[in-house]
Nucleic acid binder design. Structure first.
Length: 584
RNA sequence: GCCGACUUAGCUCAGCUGGUAGAGCAGCUGUUUUGUAAACAGCAGGUCAUCGGUUCGAAUCCGAUAGUCGGCUCCA
């Protein structure tokens, strides 16, 4: 309850600040027209229609004006007008966006206006008492935004701001943002030489460098092993397929905007695949199937190509060619619930390995334009809920939010600095089994249509990699680190010993390199630290004579007089267990 | 795709109101033999994103294109 009150107050403060900002803008830029200015997560924004283009230099000016307004402790007052009067009032002022908003309210409704000082705005409120209550805010960015969020509408200028109850909370938030910027996968990707995206190859197409590809290899190997253990089989399918395949699947009907133009091969059109499912279904169709064969669980790291608008590309998070960790489960109606529960359990287990433990489920149910038998939808939704309940996950239900072809569960995971990412998706499909006329022979000798579940756990390897880089801040656990250890000699006297240590570590299965450069130990430590290498092994005169090693751990801790065999034992366990923490 | 900003050496960045480019790091060559986050010196490296225009003269002004970034719409 206390929390709810606090949230309510914070919401009022943010919304009140939006009014204050709008007032400041109207004073600085006469003739501005107002869109909307709501409170949002962490702050607020206001949309303006203005000839002048806002520049970053305008923000401090607006903030200064806001400070002035706040200093005046202007009272917020509510005024109510009949709809017709309110319409005339805003029309007279030339506020066409406000007029549009009022027009959308039902006839006969009472329109509320909030006034503070010389400013007034169409608003349902409530607000704080007076502007003097507003203490902690910062204008952060200028952006374009479509009026009412539609591409067909004109674009307004939006100013975003963050706001909190106290300056300390604002400060903490800004610090968290700085931390996020430090971890940005685009920055770390360059610094650690993990991947690049280049203009010559094309936007949204990822080049995985040796370091990134090594991490990907470790993830893929783990992923495949887990799938075999979990009763899946792996399949592999091509990158392109004939137009008629995509006709049958329906993708050319409802997904064409996201597909690339076809290529002509011997007079027949082929499309790059945006999804893997039709290929998996064709494997199913390759022979007659019995209920005894089910469930079939077919997984593939399938590379797909989707047309993404130029403006939406973002590092590894949003690309045009990516590899989904896809699988399709084809089962009988009786198996469906157990399969759903198992997929969810399997998924949570994988998330745990990467250190993601806070997970929330979002179940989306039958929309109005759904295909497929409503009874099947009911059953599927029941299975999804049963699975979520079994795992004790926190769940939110999006009524009518499912795809037209089936209900789904999405999992959102929280990373190490508290951000939520939508990753796993588990979707029923009532469309494709129908379209492909998939069938199996039941115990009764009759033909039956199977259920099909699509699921991707990590989502795409590219996006997952981006999130993982930020989650670990580039400090990959030992099993994932591209280079796990570096041996640093202090003088050339220890070159031989350093090589010996390197060879032993290599023989023990570690990714290790000796840095034998003619350079200071300081420089070698610094270079290795910048690359976030988990273990540095320093060998100088003392170590060589004693036959020991000195460790310097990522994070600066040093351990002296370490026995090499013991080090190998401890780190071998650390690596094999995919531990998140260092053994020392 | 839309709104705005940006694009200078491998990387991080200087370059005032137009007079044809500069630093640090990285690289190469020497010197130095070093004890836990940058030893010293020298050398080399750029048609200033691309194309076009204005001008006696363009990294600098104008236009187009491409890409990047912050958002919007969309999404794994």
């Amino acid at each position: 309850m206390a929390d709810e009150k606090k949230d309510e107050l914070l919401h009022q403060m943010r919304h009140s600040l939006a009014h204050v900002m709008a007032q400041a803008v109207s004073e600085l830029f006469p003739g501005v027209k107002f869109g909307i200015g709501p409170a949002i997560e962490n702050g607020f924004y206001y949309d303006f229609d203005l000839e002048h283009h806002f520049t970053p230099e305008d923000l401090p000016k607006i903030e200064k004006k806001m400070k002035h307004i706040i200093g005046q402790a202007q009272k917020f007052e509510r005024v109510e007008l009949p709809r017709a009067e309110a319409l005339k009032h805003f029309a007279d002022k030339g506020e066409n966006y406000k007029v549009e908003l009022i027009n959308d309210l039902p006839e006969g409704s009472v329109i509320s206006i909030y006034k503070n000082g010389p400013f007034e705005d169409l608003c349902k409120g409530p607000h704080v008492e007076h502007t003097g209550k507003l203490k902690a805010y910062k204008l952060t960015s200028i952006a374009g935004a479509y009026w009412r969020g539609s591409e067909k509408n004109p674009m307004l200028q939006r100013i975003y701001a963050v706001a909190f109850e106290t300056p300390a909370e604002l400060d903490a938030y800004l610090k968290q943002q700085e931390e996020a910027a430090r971890r940005d996968h685009r920055k770390l990707g360059k610094q650690l030489d993990l991947y690049s995206i280049n203009e010559v190859v094309g936007p949204g197409l990822v080049l995985w460098h040796p370091n990134g590809a090594r991490i990907r290899h470790e993830v893929e190997t783990y992923w495949k092993d887990e799938h075999f253990k979990g009763g899946y089989d792996l399949v592999n399918t091509p990158h392109i397929g004939r137009a008629n395949l995509w006709e049958t699947s329906g993708h050319l009907g409802f997904y064409k905007d996201s597909m690339y133009a076809p290529m002509d091969i011997d007079g027949i059109e082929y499309y790059a695949k945006p999804m893997n499912c039709p290929f998996h279904i064709e494997i199913f169709q390759n022979s007659s199937r019995s209920y005894r064969d089910l469930p079939l669980r077919w997984a593939e790291l399938g590379t797909v190509y989707r047309f993404e608008k130029a403006g939406v590309l973002h590092g590894l998070m949003r690309v045009r060619g990516f590899t989904q960790d896809d699988a399709h489960i084809i089962c009988t109606p009786e198996q469906m619930e157990a399969e759903t529960i198992e997929v969810l359990r399997f998924s949570l287990n994988i998330w745990k390995t990467f250190g993601f433990t806070e997970i929330k489920a979002y179940v989306a149910t039958r929309p109005a334009d759904a295909v497929g038998d409503p009874a099947r939808w009911e059953e599927a939704q029941k299975s999804l809920m049963a699975a979520v309940k079994k795992e004790g996950l926190e769940v939110e239900i999006d009524e009518g939010g499912g795809a037209f072809y089936g209900p789904k569960i999405d999992l959102k995971v929280r990373d190490s600095i508290g951000r939520e990412w939508q990753m796993t998706t588990i979707q029923f499909d009532f469309n494709e089994p129908e379209r492909f006329q998939m069938e199996y022979t039941g115990a009764d000798g009759a033909k039956h249509r199977p259920y099909m579940i699509h699921r991707a756990l990590l989502g795409s390897l590219e996006r997952f990699f981006g999130i993982m880089i930020e989650h670990y801040a580039g400090n990959f656990p030992l099993w994932l680190a591209p280079l796990q250890m570096k041996v640093l000699n202090i003088t050339q006297e220890e070159e031989g010993y350093a090589k010996e240590v390197e060879a032993k570590l290599k023989a023990a299965g570690f990714r290790v390199k000796a840095d034998l450069r003619n350079d200071t130990i300081n420089a070698k430590v610094r270079d290795a630290a910048m690359l976030k290498i988990p273990y540095l092994i320093v060998v100088g005169k003392k170590e060589k004579e004693a036959g020991k090693i000195t460790l310097r751990l990522r994070g600066n801790k040093s351990v002296f007089d370490v026995d090499l065999q013991e080090f190998i034992q401890k780190t071998t366990i650390e690596k094999a267990s995919r531990a998140l923490n260092c053994a020392y």
